[in-house]
């Protein structure tokens, strides 16, 4: 995987939402949902972004696809800066990027049949005639594990897992290059979740897809991804290959996060790092390192200075002052 070419490169991406208030609706401050994250994704790779709610992982996904306009930064896709393209032109590019959402109950139009839902992206992008589209829809629906007879039905007739299959069919029918899965299996039950994960892995190989997998479920992320980025309060705290991150987490936040996963073995009792307090309000983040208020090893420097996101080991990036000395 490591010698694959880079397809997507995110450079210093920022998305700040203004807080409006007062008599004249003036801007009173900003919620820094995404505050300068950088990473690159290789072809056919699964890159995961994990973090707790409110850390900006979904905003990052949406901003990369320009569903939200960025405040600052660049996203290079196959040698082209996506943010330089005019809005109108960008629409044509959209077929290369697809998004699958968490909630299959609200992401499918309840008034459209499965047939109409799956055909829609093909017709919107003018990729083929109606007749061809119908054929393709049939193929695609079967590929994701539904059958032809389901085509005339409406979303409410399906269970959560089946609906997620429809969302997948709809996303993949235009043969995208990059698929962003935003908590795509979080709403599903364990037994169904594993079916969908298997399907996603199979389809990735078959359609040569690159995935950005956004999730809070660390077990699922471990199963699916090649590399993982950990976000906290709009910033990337650590980024590494999956094995490296799970076996040897460097950042105190990652260590706490991993130790908080309930373990599934009856024999060993896991030593647990219990973090104090909550995630701070993103409109009023602490000075210096965003994690310092909950960090067990915070020191003076963390208050005054935001640590730089740097490569500490081979392909293992971390933003923490604890690893500064080792470099200098």
């Amino acid at each position: 995987m490591s010698n694959q070419p880079v397809v997507l490169e995110v450079k210093n991406l920022k998305k700040h939402f203004p807080i409006k208030g007062g008599v004249f609706k003036t801007t009173q401050g900003y919620v820094k949902a995404v505050d300068g994250i950088s990473f690159s994704i290789k072809e056919n790779e699964t890159f995961s972004i994990v973090g707790e709610s409110g850390c900006g992982k979904s905003t990052a996904g949406r901003t990369i696809l320009r569903l939200l306009e960025p405040t600052e930064g660049e996203v290079w896709f196959n040698g082209e800066n996506l943010y330089d393209i005019k809005k109108r032109e960008f629409r044509k590019k959209r077929k290369d990027f697809q998004l699958i959402f968490q909630d299959p109950y609200s992401s499918l139009n309840p008034r459209m049949t499965v047939q109409e839902l799956v055909v829609e992206p093909l017709l919107t992008h003018n990729l083929c005639t109606k007749k061809e589209a119908t054929e393709k829809a049939k193929e695609m629906v079967e590929r994701v594990g539904l059958s032809e007879k389901h085509l005339t039905r409406f979303p409410h007739e399906f269970s959560g897992g089946q609906r997620q299959r429809i969302s997948i069919a709809r996303a993949l029918i235009v043969h995208p290059k990059l698929v962003i899965l935003d908590e795509a299996v979080s709403a599903l039950d364990v037994s169904v979740q594993s079916q969908i994960l298997n399907l996603l892995i199979d389809l990735q190989e078959e359609f040569e897809l690159t995935y950005i997998f956004i999730s809070h479920d660390l077990n699922v992320v471990k199963h699916l991804s090649d590399r993982v980025g950990v976000m906290y309060l709009g910033q990337m705290m650590e980024l590494a290959k999956t094995e490296d991150l799970y076996n040897e987490p460097l950042h105190p936040y990652t260590q706490a996060l991993l130790s908080a996963i309930p373990n599934l073995s009856t024999s060993e009792k896991k030593e647990r790092i219990i973090l104090q307090g909550d995630v701070p309000d993103p409109s009023n983040p602490p000075s210096g390192c965003p994690f310092r208020l909950r960090c067990p090893s915070a020191h003076d420097r963390c208050v005054s200075e935001n640590p730089v996101f740097q490569e500490v080991k081979d392909d293992h990036w971390v933003a923490c002052h604890l690893y500064d000395e080792k470099n200098s």
């Binding site: 364990v190 594993s194 298997n198 892995i201 199963h223 599934l264």
Partner: peptide
Amino acid sequence: QGLLKSIKTLGDRSEKLYSIPGNV
């Protein structure tokens, strides 16, 4: 058995994730 198997294989990429067929 199925439920535990599908959870315990999670995280091991070399193995195909075990899943119980069908829906609840």
